[in-house]
């Protein structure tokens, strides 16, 4: 049992070290929402079906991820976001959209906007203080409940290790940082708290029975 714990501990430590090294030397991989990308805005002039545009975009950009969004109040402008767009692709897209919607658009690189990469620390910055505050309140509750400071420290340490592990797994596996990274992180926060308190209450119950 003790050996098992040591092995798991070493394994987790190795994952975290590998994760930190990956973050330092290679950084995270970001998806289109957060990574550097280019957006081409096309005025269709009438309401359109996003799925149709997505199909056309797929024909031009192949397997590359494409985000298709409607723009402005009348939803008659389409914003197509891709990682990179060259003149040939612009021409192909223009041709396909003109054919589909009977337009005579003349698209150039002028219609393309560059979207800068949003840094990981800027994504998580607004979440830090409320999460720390929530953790602090739970830690205070643990101290009041157990009259034991170590239990609260242990809870904070477990949360810290989970965060490091989560970030390391994302970095090592090269899973792109996307809009689901924060919600999943929040779920982990709740799950860890739930599991910790289940064990804590069980231990307290056993103690009182003894």
């Amino acid at each position: 049992m003790k050996n098992k714990k040591i092995i798991i501990g070493i394994l987790l430590l190795l994952i975290i070290i590998a994760g930190i090294l990956t973050i330092v030397f290679a950084g995270f991989k970001f998806d289109l929402y957060y990574g550097a990308s280019k957006t081409i805005s096309i005025n269709i002039g009438k309401e359109f079906n996003s799925e149709e545009i997505k199909e056309l975009a797929k024909e031009v950009f192949g397997k590359e991820k494409v985000i298709v969004q409607k723009e402005e109040m009348f939803k008659d402008i389409v914003a197509i976001t891709v990682k990179e767009i060259n003149d040939e692709q612009i021409e192909q897209l223009q041709q396909k959209i003109n054919e589909k919607y009977g337009l005579e658009l003349d698209l150039t690189q002028e219609n393309v906007d560059y979207n800068s990469h949003i840094r990981g620390r800027d994504i998580i910055k607004p979440y830090i203080s409320p999460i720390l505050m929530a953790t602090l309140f739970v830690a205070i509750y643990i101290v009041v409940r157990t009259r034991n400071l170590w239990s609260a420290i242990k809870y904070v340490l477990i949360l810290g290790i989970t965060v490091l592990l989560y970030a390391s797994i994302i970095a090592i596996t090269r899973i792109p940082v996307n809009i689901y990274v924060v919600p999943v992180g929040l779920v982990l926060f709740i799950l860890i708290t739930l599991i910790y308190f289940n064990i804590l209450e069980k231990n307290l119950k056993n103690k009182s029975e003894d």
Binding site: P126, Y127, P130, I131, M133, A134, F137, V138, Y141, I142, V182, P183, L186, F189, I190, T193, L194, F197, N198, E201
Partner: peptide
């Protein structure tokens, strides 16, 4: 009773300015 810490987290996050939290 085991959900009390989750309720504490929920109440703290209710006061967060960030829409997601």
């Amino acid at each position: 009773f085991k959900l009390l810490p989750i309720l504490i987290i929920a109440v703290v996050l209710c006061f967060a300015k960030i829409e997601a939290l």
